[in-house]
Design a protein around this nucleic acid. Sequence first.
DNA 1: CATTGCGTAGAAAACGATTTCTATCGTTGC
DNA 2: GCAACGATAGAAATCGTTTTCTACGCAATG
Lengths: 349, 349
Amino acid sequence: MRKSVTILDIAKLAHASPATVSRVLSNSSYPVSAELKRKIKSAAKELNYTPNLLGRQLKTNNSMTIGIIVPSISNPFYSSIVLGVEEIARANGYQVLLCNSHQDVILEKQFLQTMLEKQVKGVIISSISAEKNLLRQFSDKGICVISIDQHREGEDIYQINYDYRKGGFMAASHLAECGHTKIAFVTAPLDRPSRIYMVQGFRDALRESRILFNDGYLLVSEIPKNTNYNSNIEFENGKTMARRLTELSDRPTAVVACNDLMALGFIYELNRLGVRVPDDVSVIGFDNIDFANISMPPLTTVDHPKYEMGKFSCGMLFQVLNGENVNISEIVLQPKLVIRNSVRVLANC
Amino acid sequence: MRKSVTILDIAKLAHASPATVSRVLSNSSYPVSAELKRKIKSAAKELNYTPNLLGRQLKTNNSMTIGIIVPSISNPFYSSIVLGVEEIARANGYQVLLCNSHQDVILEKQFLQTMLEKQVKGVIISSISAEKNLLRQFSDKGICVISIDQHREGEDIYQINYDYRKGGFMAASHLAECGHTKIAFVTAPLDRPSRIYMVQGFRDALRESRILFNDGYLLVSEIPKNTNYNSNIEFENGKTMARRLTELSDRPTAVVACNDLMALGFIYELNRLGVRVPDDVSVIGFDNIDFANISMPPLTTVDHPKYEMGKFSCGMLFQVLNGENVNISEIVLQPKLVIRNSVRVLANC
DNA sequence: CATTGCGTAGAAAACGATTTCTATCGTTGC
DNA sequence: GCAACGATAGAAATCGTTTTCTACGCAATG
């Protein structure tokens, strides 16, 4: 491992000054004679020069990096978002620092700190935490933050959200229209806006359909212990919830799950227990991940334009970075019901 | 956006020199009096100081970053690997620069270049390309490269591989044992070692079972055009292959797919076309991703310890970085058959 | 008592780049 | 023919750190 070649080595070889070398190699608009330009370029190639971005970025105060924090890319919902973000970032020549918070508030906080230290120019975050001070630090330093998917109340921050209330409403309404009246809601802990809004919309729909909601039908899973970062917590939770459902005295005929992963785990376990979907229990999921298609039966779900959310948010970020006037500070994406085969239409309809 | 606070501001406030401030704030072993230490720490807190890693890393020549390149995290197989890598990296205080090559050789090359420029201390790569010069650049600069999943021939490089040959062998043998003789192999282009070895093992198994392989039964999908980075290419390919299979004159009774995603797409399309699995066609996948469980029917597949591969590779990387003597340069992980319900046992068995 | 060595602190150099400032041409304008 | 200007190039300052070098006082050693 020899000492790495720097701009100075090139200067020496090409009989030029480091200043000129830098100007040539970084495509500056500063005029350099064609002859010298050529010599410098060939010297750079000869020495197999690789610019040191740490040096450049320190001087220019531009890390060309944005950060993104999501719970976990093991959920295809989030990996879609990430891919959307990456695509736009790459198109703009930026790198993405990806962090999986694993639903851990402490970890999320640490990642945010690291991003500050790494001098990211912007952050896109689907936050687990409602803490306001953390994100304020970024605005204080003039770093753009875009919150996605989880509505943040009373914060002066760019947001790209999704109408979870309406989504919950659509899911429950659909079940009601199919003749169901005993409808449960299975969900991970109601620790973030998305889930809270979903339940709200769900309840609203029942009320509107004059269905009394049995509080015992709100099945909330335990707070997960993150021992294994690979295990798909949502999927496992779905399985547990299925068992809890079958133990209910007056068993519901239909269920809305807070996301597809959970719905799939739910269906999986139901199948295993010999409870038929949709004959015995109907299930609606949320997110419309690719795999919702391939379950047994194919999952009826509420679509979420996740990939677009990733692209939007990153596009918005660059608008802000480029100083363009971004006059909308919150965008709300719309849900869409995707009907497949996991919901039974009851006879009396 | 005010000027950011640096070590100099702290020095001024605490009436100390920048040198001393640095020593205190970076936990150097250099002795500093307790009193001064206290003053500096309180000054840092008062000014809400955030260290600039670009400065530090430039000086220390340690980016505390490793890179990982995989085809795409939209494939749960790769997101598992990534999560394994991240876990170990984080435990060692390192960041991970994740790049999705999207099966694009050019892109992969660009990412590698960026990693060089970003001064990563190591790279973990599941490479799409057989090009040797690229990776050699890293060894030349003393950067550790660990190749995973794709065997590299005749390169002096650390490797963590998987016995794809044996995996292919096991899949085909299982089908043969279940009485199948008309067995197809559906795969994405044979452009990398994993797939080539799988086919090899597959053929070996057939030969050993005295089954003649019909070359028309080797179904290779087109090279994908990467227009949409979100679409799950493998899954789509699986669907296409299913259609091609049904058009075959002497239709096979069983199929091995080169990965679960493809198998799932394959099954999905078969279902749609009214071809029953496993009654009409048996299917075996590869990788044993979580979702292999939830297809209709649950997928019989060959397990791949992907998460462990991620952890192993990153662990090995740090061993090398720490100068520990790593005497094994290639580790080969073993396949395991996971029997579920996508394979039919024929009557004559 | 002179020498060594340790504890403590700051001055200054260094990391690898960019950018401002100076300087020297040759050319143009009047 | 002289001032002004544009093109070109290098010297030197700079980004925010870390680290080496210097320095000084004080205790221990012989």
